[in-house]
């Protein structure tokens, strides 16, 4: 049985447009892969196919050898697949602390109770403090998320997703909108992730990609153009023409 995530021959059409073309891809425990490609290449769509937000037209997605393509998104999360949103999607009117509390309660199966206050679990609150500390968010714990700067909201987005303790983590442009003075917090957080966690990071910031990824997958027009080490990818003429050229429009 092969461990980790294994995607084979994945296809997705939106109407007549093919946004995923026969994608085969794998992510082993402990992998740090980056997915790059021009705007509209289908990176977010690919992430959504893996998390179950979108259903593929054909192809299979296996997690530790088990086909999860029929599982609903919420079931896949329970199985250990989680992602951050490219466009921050948080519980805006809740406090930062509540934003982290909710996924932890859900993860631990503690989110069903009608009685007893939601904040009564000491271990959960300690875990929240630890996560918030890691993202320099402790001082903002009681603030409604909507009052935070966008860069900080990005950090909450990441902390919230890590709170799920996933085995497969997809980060969709985690540094987009984060001031460059804060992007080290994101890099630190990625570098501190558990070693056996599989990470796929979608990112336009090449500095960040080269820092954290050991392999890079290039997606163009819904299809994988090539995969390789950062050195191989940076030498690849096709990638330079196709992607690095288009990047300046971004």
């Amino acid at each position: 049985m092969s461990m980790g995530l294994e995607v084979s021959h994945l296809n997705k059409n939106f109407g007549g447009i093919k946004v995923a073309r026969d994608i085969s891809f794998d992510l082993k425990p402990g992998d740090r892969k980056a997915l790059i490609g021009p705007n509209g290449a289908g990176k977010t769509t690919f992430a959504n196919l893996i998390t179950g937000t979108l259903k593929p037209n054909s192809g299979s997605i296996r997690l530790d050898g088990v086909d999860i393509v029929k599982l609903k998104e919420s079931k896949r999360v329970k199985a250990g697949v989680a992602k951050t949103f490219q466009i921050t999607t948080l519980f805006k009117r809740m406090s930062v602390r509540e934003n982290i509390r909710l996924p932890i309660l859900e993860r631990d199966g503690k989110s069903h109770g009608w009685f007893g206050r939601a904040e009564r679990f000491v271990a959960v609150e300690d875990e929240i403090d630890e996560l918030l500390g890691q993202f320099n968010l402790l001082d903002f714990a009681e603030m409604p998320v909507q009052d935070l700067a966008y860069g900080q909201q990005r950090l909450v987005e990441m902390a919230l997703t890590l709170a799920l303790k996933p085995r497969i983590l997809i980060l969709d442009e985690p540094s987009a909108g984060v001031p460059s003075s804060d992007s080290h917090i994101i890099i630190d957080a990625i570098e501190r992730l558990p070693k056996d966690l599989s990470v796929l990071i979608i990112e336009h910031d090449m500095k960040l990609v080269f820092k954290v990824a050991s392999r890079i997958v290039v997606l163009v027009n819904g299809a994988i153009l090539t995969e390789g080490t950062p050195e191989e990818i940076s030498q690849n003429q096709q990638v330079r023409d196709l992607y690095l050229g288009a990047r300046h429009e971004h």
Binding site: K72, S74, E106, A118
Partner: peptide, 25 residues
């Protein structure tokens, strides 16, 4: 004030986010 209530508020704010944390909305 319970976890159930927190989930209800979460659903109010974003179905999408709730699914992404594993809730069967």
């Amino acid at each position: 004030a319970s976890p159930f209530g927190l989930v209800a508020r979460g659903i109010h704010e974003s179905h999408e986010r709730m699914r992404a944390i594993g809730t069967s909305v």
